[in-house]
Design a protein around this nucleic acid. Structure first.
Lengths: 334, 334
DNA sequence: CTGTTAGCGCTTTCAC
DNA sequence: GTGAAAGCGCTAACAG
């Protein structure tokens, strides 16, 4: 219908100055009860809400944060985003979601876009490589927290999960199960996650003196899992997958080969996305606390924004081993 | 480090007035080439970007749209959100994501929140019931498009999928397969989707004169699917599920009962979420074009925002029958 | 306690 | 083609 009602309108009707209206809203204790009630009444009647853009301009903050992730369609991210939103909305912030598809150019555009939108901070999950555009934020002291990725180059804030340890725990378990030959079917090798999981794998290989193993890199998808099996020189006793999606593809391929899981071969995943407990067989995997990742990142960012001179901080979350049907039961320890 | 550089700064350095800088950015053709180049050079050097909050205040638009969905964690929504974002970002809009958990009170809060944030429009997927708070937008001519839901009460814009027809198509197929006894295992009955799918089911029951059927309502979850099977007076030849999640639960329960799919009983889903083609058995279902839903909604909203006096419009998308392994092959037609 | 004033950074008349 | 000035709606000194 008409123009939105402004503070001036309220002031005029109430017969007070705009600043009084502003005070009623922001510092009610500094206004006499009489005026306060009168003004509040009119505010309610007209269903007035302050124009947050004007507030934003004045205060230098729109209470908006940017979230850059590779792809919300990747089952790893929805819960993270939910964790971020749940925390930040309570604090009055809104969250602008951006999908980068792990593309460096797109990431740069997005970062510029968010910068021009004057966000108060950003939560960033980038591709493997360092994105120099990040400095438009850091150089101007706009808080940024890295999610699920670190760049040594920055002495910055981040929230990650200890992938190396997660993979190592899993391998330790598999060794105890009695598996003797292994294959790691991993995601894209330039990727932070793939590297860490590979490292955890190698650590176990060394520690447990595993002689019989093979490693192949592909992508973090179902299809890639399916294909990677074909690249193996031989099917080992257990197929350790870079993530759950890969594991699903591997399971399908393995069964198509006439092998049965876990009787003939074991398969494991990484992430524990929602479906893994319902898959058939249900998947032995390493759970990443996605919701927590998001929540912690939001919390961290919030502190950086609101607390003057809050020091950057790194948070490392612990993954958890989840044992289900896709691997054989642990052998009796001797 | 320091304060963000402003238009004034550029103007001073270039030795021109702020309005000229503004023109260089917004209406370059109205500025002489000499000045334009000079100003552009400085803009580049200082990596200047206009403060969009100030622009927003001045122009009365922040180029932001709000998206309210029940839960990004529900596999139905990520692709929709992606469709929205891909379209709208290209147009310079950013998208504020809000999860309502289908809770009426939360929805109201969110709507108020978005209103106070001065969004240019909103895409709204609500619970089943009409939310009166919606009128804060409609009454002020702020564009709103309903997604996956309509309320007769509004002569508004919406994008929906013809669920009734989708279910009817599926039933038609199942009848052709030779199935004689049916059960509909549906989601929460107050829900727009559950109602429509129920309607399509009944339509088929009538049309094909199905005598032997049963209907039970639960929730749209795996667990609910699992439980609903137990509520059946007897296991029919085919279990028609309200969505894919329910179907997964049903499949698990059915197999636990020692029945085999599709040999002993058929199971179908609705939605065709990403996993359904990889599930075992892969799921016969009705595909909703999620990405398209989002894209169309974004397109519609965009037109409503930018085209003066664009008329509200309803878009109905067609679902597609997807035949896979969870139902038996069609019988030879006589 | 309340009002007046200035100004956040930008765009847009309106003069020249 | 360019500059001066006003103002979007709000908040924060500063007076009184």
């Amino acid at each position: 219908m008409s123009r939105k009602v402004s503070m001036k309108d309220i002031a005029k009707i109430a017969g007070v100055s705009p600043s009084t209206v502003s005070r009623v809203i922001n510092k009610p204790s500094e206004v006499s009860e009489g005026l306060r009630k009168k003004v509040m009444k009119i505010i309610k009647e007209l269903n007035y809400t302050p124009n947050s853009v004007a507030q934003g301009l004045r205060k230098g903050s729109m209470k908006v944060i940017g979230v850059v992730i590779p792809d919300i369609t990747n089952p790893f991210f929805p819960a993270i985003v939910r964790g971020i939103e749940d925390f930040l909305r309570k604090k009055g912030y809104s969250l602008v979601l951006c999908n980068s598809d792990q593309d460096m150019e797109e990431e740069k555009k997005l970062l510029k876009f968010l910068y021009s939108k004057n966000v108060d901070g950003v939560i960033f999950t980038g591709s493997g490589e360092y994105n120099p555009e990040i400095e438009i934020f850091t150089s101007r002291n706009i808080p940024l927290v890295f999610l699920d990725r670190i760049y040594k180059k920055e002495s910055s804030s981040y929230v990650i999960v200890d992938n190396v340890d997660g993979m190592f725990k899993l391998m330790t378990y598999l060794v105890k199960c009695g598996y003797k030959s292994f294959a790691l079917l991993n995601g894209y090798k330039e990727t932070f996650s793939a590297k860490a999981r590979y490292e955890g794998f190698l650590k176990a290989v060394k520690k447990y003196n595993i002689k019989n193993y093979e490693v192949v890199f592909g992508r973090f998808t179902y299809e890639s899992g399916y294909e990677m099996v074909e690249k193996l020189s031989k099917i080992p006793e257990v197929l350790v997958c870079g993530n759950d999606l890969i594991a699903y593809g591997v399971i399908n391929k393995i069964e198509k080969l006439g092998l049965s899981i876990p009787d003939d071969v074991g398969v494991t995943g990484f992430d524990d996305i929602a479906f893994s407990k319902h898959y058939k067989p249900s998947l032995t995997t390493v759970r990443q606390p996605m919701y927590q990742i998001g929540k912690k990142a939001a919390e961290l960012l919030f502190k950086m924004i609101e607390l003057e001179k809050y020091k950057p901080k790194g948070i490392v979350l612990n993954p958890e081993l989840v044992i289900r049907e896709s691997t054989k039961k642990i052998e009796m320890e001797v």
